[in-house]
């Protein structure tokens, strides 16, 4: 297999490109549209590059949202308050919607998000707002505060606060940048269980191999061994 299934209990090193590609395929396998799956891959990669648990949180989210309808997970946008149709807000859908409204947020629109699953997954999208507009953005929930700028992320909160499964989140532009941690373009380790979970979702996007497809699909032709 191109992207190997990690053996149980082991940590394996993956390039950021592999993480992005696996994230995209896994999200697609879990039922997200291709465009949202691209956002998922990008988000997992962004978090991994900032030494945050991108693949891990994505795997948790996909397991949670597997089989749920888009409409139940997407924000209904009210007056400053965003709420899911009938479930926890999906951070991939919500993050994309936030990033699509980058200029509104940078010009002062505050957004209250009720009950977001895996809120840490919003960070790459808030970073997108900062990259697009140059305005720093703050995400905050009960015991965590993240500041995203075009250069990176500043975190105030414990590890447990960052891996919460559901929180009300506030998203707003802030006036002042603070010192941030920048991305590091280097591979990182992912635990075997996480990788296996993502790979199982990704696997749903692969067509079963048949002899017919091997011949026709890859292009039978003249001898290739002369």
């Amino acid at each position: 297999m191109g992207i190997p299934t990690a053996t149980e209990g082991r940590l394996m090193s993956f390039s950021l490109n592999e993480i992005a590609s696996m994230g995209k395929r896994a999200a697609r396998g879990a039922g997200y549209s291709w465009g949202l799956a691209e956002e998922a891959g990008k988000a997992a990669r962004w978090l991994a590059a900032h030494d945050l648990p991108g693949p891990e949180l994505l795997a948790e989210l996909l397991i949670r949202n597997d089989g749920r309808e888009y409409e139940t997970l997407a924000p209904v946008i009210g007056d400053g308050k965003w709420k899911a149709g009938s479930d926890l807000l999906c951070p991939l859908i919500t993050g994309s919607a936030l990033c699509d409204r980058a200029s509104e947020i940078s010009s002062g629109r505050k957004v209250e998000l009720s009950a977001v699953a895996m809120p840490m997954l919003l960070a790459p999208f808030a970073a997108g707002v900062a990259e697009l507009t140059g305005t720093p953005v703050r995400l905050s929930w009960a015991d965590a505060e993240l500041t995203l700028t075009a250069e990176g992320i500043a975190i105030d909160g414990s590890t447990t606060a960052l891996t919460r499964r559901a929180e009300n989140v506030r998203c707003e532009a802030v006036d002042q940048a603070c010192p941030v941690k920048a991305a590091k373009i280097a591979g990182r380790t992912v635990d075997a269980e996480t990788w296996t979970r993502l790979a199982a979702f990704a696997h749903r996007t692969y067509a079963p191999a048949t002899e017919a497809s091997r011949l026709a699909g890859a292009g039978a032709g003249l001898s290739d061994s002369d």
Binding site: G2, H203, Y206, P208, A209, S213, R214, G217
Partner: peptide, 11 residues
Amino acid sequence: VSEEKLEPRLG
């Protein structure tokens, strides 16, 4: 993408 070696194919 085929399950086998994850290569792109056209069907």
